Simulated scan of single mutants.
Amino acid sequence: MIKRKAKGASKPIGECISQLQKCLRERLCHNRIPSRLEASEAQHKHLLGLLQRTANNGESNSVLIIGPRGSGKTALLKCVLRDLLQEKEVQKNLLQVHLNGLLQTDDRIALKEITRQLNLENVVGDKVFGSFAENLVFLLEALKKGDRSTTRPVLFVLDEFDLFAHHKNQTLLYNLLDVSQSAQAPVAVVGLTCRLDVLELLEKRVKSRFSHRQIHLLSSLTFAQYLERVASQLSLPDDFPDREFALDWNSSVRRFCEDKSVEGILQRHFNSSKDFRSLHMLLMLCLSRISTVNPTIKPADILEASRLCFSDAKSNMLHGLSILELCLVIAMKHLNDVYEGEPFNFQMVHNGL
């Protein structure tokens, strides 16, 4: 239907398909911030209130956002920051420092990254500090405004918060939380973690300086909402360049989502994971099959995409190997077990056949 109607449309079918793929790939791959979070309004309001008090009133706060992977912790924080930065005064004054426990593996690297993100490399220069705390206090002092009376508020976001608890003596966490508690400077510390027992990892001196505010995110998504998400992610917006093509595409998406075989495949994915990132990967694989020859999304597309998503990556590497090649792989596996990871050459593999 789309192909036939597009012949009389203002744009060629190929150009419409190209615009379609560009629009949907930006939506699925760039993880655009949603206009609102369906099941996290209370958590959004709570976190926004905390950060507003830091940005507007200079009140220091610390909070942990806890939830399983894919539950929307990062999306919640991004939505809050988007709403917070709509105020011009906040946008002008609030400084942000984003750290990740997978990247900043020790306090020295973390402090260097804090200095870089605050643009204070020239201020620090070749100064030598006696301790981590002395260095951090100097950085916060350098953020004071021209009259030296007030300090710009700083938001510290610690992704993979539990990994920072494994740093030696938890120096970074101790000093950040100590600053937030002692009101030396307006600082908000927001930690994101998927570990429910994260507080048990903290030392007593660190735990005593934490406010014990926790925001829990648990996925309460129903399958009906999951289907609505699929339809909304695949639908074209009202401002799509070719209006007639967009209407035909959106009607085909509705028929696609009502198909019983499609519902069965999506039910399987929903039961295995409610993570929207895995859903976006599934939809991206479907989208990659769209072309001028196949201008609509069909149940066969999602069936093939689902097969790719659930396939074993290790077994995929062995597909297509001959019997001889499989024998070589088995011999190498035996040699690797015998020599416990020590190097071996092809002659040793050949002798092991």
Rank of each mutant, 00 (worst) to 15 (best):
L202S: 03
S273V: 02
Y174H: 11
T193W: 12
C194L: 02
F344K: 00
P241H: 04
R205M: 01
L172Q: 13
D301K: 05
H212G: 01
D239T: 10
V349I: 07
L202Y: 08
D147V: 01
E203Q: 14
R148H: 10
F156Y: 03
T222H: 09
I65G: 08
E59H: 14
L24V: 09
I330E: 10
E304W: 06
M332V: 10
L282F: 08
L81E: 15
L77M: 09
Q86L: 14
L324T: 10
W249H: 12
V123D: 04
E258A: 15
G146T: 09
Q347D: 15
R32D: 12
V90Y: 05
F344W: 12
E160N: 14
I17K: 02
L279Y: 00
E121L: 04
S182H: 08
Q184E: 11
A110K: 02
V230F: 12
R277G: 13
I297C: 08
A300C: 12
L335N: 03
L279C: 06
M284W: 07
T74A: 06
F223K: 05
N93M: 09
Q104W: 03
K11H: 12
H98F: 15
S219G: 02
E121M: 07
L95K: 15
S291V: 07
G70S: 07
E203G: 12
S311Y: 06
N56M: 13
V198R: 00
S40E: 13
W249R: 03
R213F: 07
D259W: 02
N169A: 07
K260G: 06
C29W: 07
R36V: 08
R148T: 03
A183W: 06
L236P: 02
E15Q: 14
M281D: 09
N351G: 10
S288I: 00
S291E: 09
S180C: 06
L85C: 08
I13A: 05
V63W: 00
Y174K: 11
E160Y: 07
D239K: 05
A331C: 06
A133C: 04
C257W: 04
P295I: 10
K314P: 00
C257P: 05
L177C: 08
L227H: 03
I109S: 10
C286A: 07
D242A: 05
S180W: 01
A42I: 12
K168P: 01
E304Q: 11
K145R: 11
S62R: 00
T54E: 05
E89T: 10
F210L: 08
A231L: 05
M317A: 08
N122R: 15
F156R: 04
F161E: 01
D238R: 05
V190F: 11
S272Y: 11
E263C: 00
L102V: 12
S311H: 04
L324E: 15
L177R: 04
V124P: 09
R289C: 06
M1S: 14
R27C: 06
I302G: 02
H216I: 12
L47H: 03
I302Q: 11
H212K: 14
L221R: 14
C79L: 14
V80K: 02
R229T: 15
Q225W: 03
L103N: 13
K5D: 09
Q117R: 06
Y226H: 14
F156Q: 04
A185T: 13
C194S: 15
